[in-house]
Design a protein around this nucleic acid. Structure first.
Lengths: 141, 141
DNA sequence: ACTTGACCCTGTAGTTGCTACAGGGTGTGC
DNA sequence: GCACACCCTGTAGCAACTACAGGGTCAAGT
């Protein structure tokens, strides 16, 4: 099949497919006499694998590793497990960080519950001050 | 003060300060006869404001808006509040998305609790299949 | 035979918020 | 007069695409 059909089947852009090829995630396909790329079922499967990984937030360099694991079926799969654990840890860290961020934003939001001018606005004032921030550590008061 | 001192005081890189100037967040400062940038207290405050916003995950384009609000003290501050609400909503959406991601990764992780080969590894198999994924909707079975 | 339109090709620039140079000039202390 | 820290401009890199520009190919319709 040609690149357009392949892309449509997995639901991504044609450019994305070419990008994966350039990045070495997809093998260079055969070409028709016209120069058009010609893909087979195996390419479709690989591309689906890649897109699944991407939908889980896995980075391209890590997907490359997973593709390598997939190419070595007899090897012990502890590498796969370790890579997945890294993903989970990363997501957990991000959730924690985002939770903190949310709390900070919400407490900042409470600084201005009433309609007033920018001069009086507690949010803008807090963004000016933020004494708990390390960049104020050398200030007096 | 010179750019190095300014950067040190807020805890960012010299390059970051120049970058903010290029992006129009910091005004172009006076120059010494040597050509060195010469900053005052107001520049320090603005830079601190910017860094506080950045630590809250606010984008540069939105920080620009906040700086504009700050420059118009008599204006009604509803724009500030609206901008902050957007931040909170965004963070909440990201937290939800990351929570989903974490659940998917954890369920995937459970596909392989035992030491085995890549061929048998439930994780790699799931990444190949993932029937619930829209990219498989045209397949038989 | 000719044209239209959909598809394909390569290559490059843009996105975001910096970071890291390269290749030069300036200032200060010894 | 020299070393060294600091400053300057400009450009390239990161991640994972997206969006062209400027061309070639192919199939159907007239």
């Amino acid at each position: 099949m040609r690149i357009g059909e392949l892309a449509k089947r997995v639901g991504c852009d044609v450019e994305t497919v070419r990008y994966y090829e350039k990045e070495g995630l997809l093998a260079k396909p055969n070409r028709e006499s016209s120069g058009y790329r010609d893909y087979g079922a195996a390419d479709l499967e690989t591309l689906q694998f890649i897109r699944h990984c991407r939908s889980l937030g896995i980075k391209l360099t890590e997907i490359k590793q997973l593709l390598n694991f997939r190419c070595r079926p007899e090897e012990d799969c502890s590498g796969v497990n370790a890579l997945l654990d890294i993903q989970i840890t990363r997501v957990e860290e991000q959730i924690t960080a985002m939770g903190l961020l949310k709390a900070q934003l919400q407490s900042l939001r409470k600084e201005c519950e009433h309609r007033q001018t920018n001069r009086e606005c507690g949010i803008l004032q807090s963004l000016n001050q933020m004494r708990q921030c390390p960049c104020h550590r050398n200030e007096v008061g």
